[in-house]
Nucleic acid binder design. Sequence first.
RNA 1: GUGGCUGUAGCUCAAUCGGCAGAGCACUUGACUGUGGAUCAAGGUGUUGCGGGUUCAAGCCCCGUCAGCCACCCCA
Length: 429
Amino acid sequence: MKNIIPPVKGTRDFYPQQMAIRVWLYNIIRQVSESFGYQEWDAPFLESLELYAAKSNEEMVKEQSYVFEDRGGKLITLRPELTPSLARMVAQKQNVLVFPLRWWSFGPFWRYERPQKGRTREFFQWNVDLLGPDSPEADAENVAVLATFFKTVGLTPKEVLIMVSDRCLLDAQLSAFDIPAESRAAVSAWIDQRDKLSAEAWRAKASELGLSDEQLSQIEAMLADKELWKNSAELIRFFKAIETLGLSDYVRFDAGIVRGFTYYTGTVFEAWEVGGDIRRSILGGGRYDKLLADVGGDRLPAVGYAMGDVVITLMLEKYGLLPKDLKVSPAPVLVTVFDHERLLESYALASELRRTGLSVTCYPEPAKLPKQFKFADRMGIRLVTVVGPDEAAAGKVTLKDLARGKQVTVAREKAAEAIRQALAKVLAS
RNA sequence: GUGGCUGUAGCUCAAUCGGCAGAGCACUUGACUGUGGAUCAAGGUGUUGCGGGUUCAAGCCCCGUCAGCCACCCCA
């Protein structure tokens, strides 16, 4: 690598091999989303900075967003998340859209962070949102989409769990512990950090926040209480609905789930690897009933989540769930060029075959046959045609199946049919 | 923004105490003048990330810098 300009830090190059995986993931996401009746949509990749101001996590806007001034002097942001755009677009057409609204999206996002395992500066996110209803059953349906995704890709509850809590429940508990409303946000953030800090460091921060020893032990008891959800009428309904949907295995209550975004108002959830070494949430989401009003629309209840492609791909790779031998060559047929004089004859044959609906690659220049066969082999092209002087004189085409190592010579009019038959043959392996 | 580790051929890596730049894979060409994978032969494989310093001598030691990876912060 001499004078090659390096890629931008934190970006990924999608060579055909990686692109095939990305498309594979996209297809599963689409299939799962649409099986619940969600519609695909997308927002601009560029938004104005003020869309995110005070709506998202403050650090994300101030330090992790790509912001630049356009030629007109306006501050433009490369979208770091999708939800504010969703709120904006729904608010714009609130009287036109049909509710309940189910929308899903898969596209690129940018955050200026230090790249590391499972994190890049440019990444893709799957967003699934349900707007209109404010019921726990709606939350359950939204969570069901993602549990169904896990099931579809082959991740079991032994490998991944969706941890659920409710900010209202947390707030009520903190209130019951006599923690004043103005410090609850900081206390919530501190609770969110519990898995990341050592027990000593975490407890030490409690006194910094002005918590008494009694309050600390009350909070620790709360976090350990697996039955706390039974104090919440909403969570009782939520888990009942999850059970009815047949997905209880994937969903657990955890009072320690808080989430960083300030716009969440009720149910919050994250998916985590079970006891594994991926110390990072696979996805996160929750209810955000006030966001639409915050961007200037009428109040509209909403619930949704976002899953990044980087961590989920790590998970799938770790558990051997990524597809092997993804097809990277779209055309299963190579038309070889026998010599310089027959180049255009090959083009003509390839064109004939394409008109019958086949995908066909034609070697673009005369070359030795071994070279062309090797090309086909390395590209994963299964069938090769040869038209040399013998075939041309007899009006025939030789067709070799590289996978089976067998070849036949057929009349040129029958070539397309013979190719279809050969492709239909299942390999012994 | 903070800390740690690592930079050698296209890729994965080796090089003893500081003493002449190495292996495998891949690539190109040829054994195969109408047939891929396998085997064999011949070959480019190179500013040792970059800049400076110490030394008779630096891939190796020192300083700086850049890049990558990993952890923290935060998050998907």
